[in-house]
Amino acid sequence: MVDGRAIVGKIDNAVVVVRSGPPPSEPTRGRSPVSLFWRIFLLNAAVFTAATAFLIFAPITVPVSFMLPEALILGAGLVIMLTANAVLLRVGLAPLRRLVKAMTTTDLLRPGPRPAVTGHAGIADLIQTFNTMLDRLEAERALSTARALSAQEAERRRVAQELHDEVGQSLTAVLLELKRVKDHAPESMREELRQVQETTRDSLDEIRRIARRLRPGVLEELGLISALKALTSEVAGSARLTVQRKFDTDLPDLDDEAELVLYRVAQESITNTARHARANRLEVSLRRVGTGVLLRLRDDGVGLGDASEGAGMRGMRERALLVGADLSIAGHPTGGTEVRLHLPIRDRRAPR
């Protein structure tokens, strides 16, 4: 079950929770504060201590000549047994501790290495089952994310088309009607009508900008580089932001899905910079790195600070996982924020 906070699975009738966010800071209510190691150790220690006490104080087993040296020898033997018990338990339960750590830190938006399958048969089987559950959950999440993003893009196209065809044409008709009225209006009213025309024209331009952001037609018609250039030029003009662009000309072939992910990540990053970063300069680069591509955006703004990731950043991570890309969002050492998206190219290219 995936609910945005935790993912629940079953391992040998035991419920395992894999969180999709940071682990809780407070301990779970009702959970014993004594670890499994200490429970087993204390139980064994109680058994050893009882056996030693029985040997010392039982009249049947202790000779008449029992003296302090014999008691010291038994005490030393008890200490040695307890130490050996502690060492063996610590070694035997080490894989289980690693599994518990993986359970509490696993985040499906930031996939990491699986816990090593080590330990005795029971613990090894538990770790292997946990890894299999993670693989299944990540596959199911990727499938559901792909469906959700596909539906989202379809809805964006529909809304953009309606804005362009319905609202855009209506505002164009209003502009034409205002021009006709202005030409026949008295001189005293022409200035007011001109202001109404300007307001209507600005609204029409804004509707067109919204439609372009919802459905990047230039991406479908002219490709990724042209779409990124148009995006940065639009933001630079509206946000008074100096944009430095660097795009390699020998980029590998990308399928439509990969290009859309790169464009949407760049769009979200640039929008965040323009709205929240209070930056003056933005660097946008798209380079070929080995057999893949690297999209990098860096600004000189206020940085992330202590702000938590919002829906926009989570959406970027989900899109990156959709195409098997690695996304990092972090503050730059010299200030500002840096977003890096590395997309390896696999044999999944579709004909264009």
Rank of each mutant, 00 (worst) to 15 (best):
L88R: 11
L88I: 04
R90T: 08
R90N: 08
R90F: 14
R90V: 05
R90L: 12
V91I: 10
V91C: 08
V91Q: 10
V91S: 08
G92H: 12
G92K: 09
G92W: 11
G92M: 11
L93M: 11
L93N: 08
P95I: 02
P95G: 03
P95W: 03
L96F: 15
R97K: 12
R97L: 07
R97Y: 09
R98Y: 07
R98T: 10
L99Q: 01
L99S: 02
L99R: 00
V100H: 13
V100W: 10
K101A: 11
K101C: 06
K101I: 05
A102D: 10
M103P: 00
M103E: 14
T104I: 06
T104Q: 14
T105W: 06
T106D: 12
L108E: 01
L108F: 12
L108N: 01
L108W: 05
L108D: 01
L109S: 10
R110H: 10
R110Q: 05
P111A: 01
G112E: 05
P113H: 05
P113K: 09
P115I: 02
P115R: 04
A116Q: 14
A116E: 08
A116N: 05
A116G: 00
A116F: 04
A116K: 15
V117W: 00
V117N: 02
T118N: 09
G122R: 13
I123V: 11
I123Y: 03
A124H: 01
A124F: 02
A124M: 01
D125W: 10
L126A: 11
L126M: 13
I127V: 14
I127D: 04
I127W: 07
I127Q: 03
I127Y: 07
Q128C: 08
T129N: 14
F130Q: 04
N131D: 00
T132D: 14
T132N: 15
T132K: 15
M133T: 06
L134Q: 13
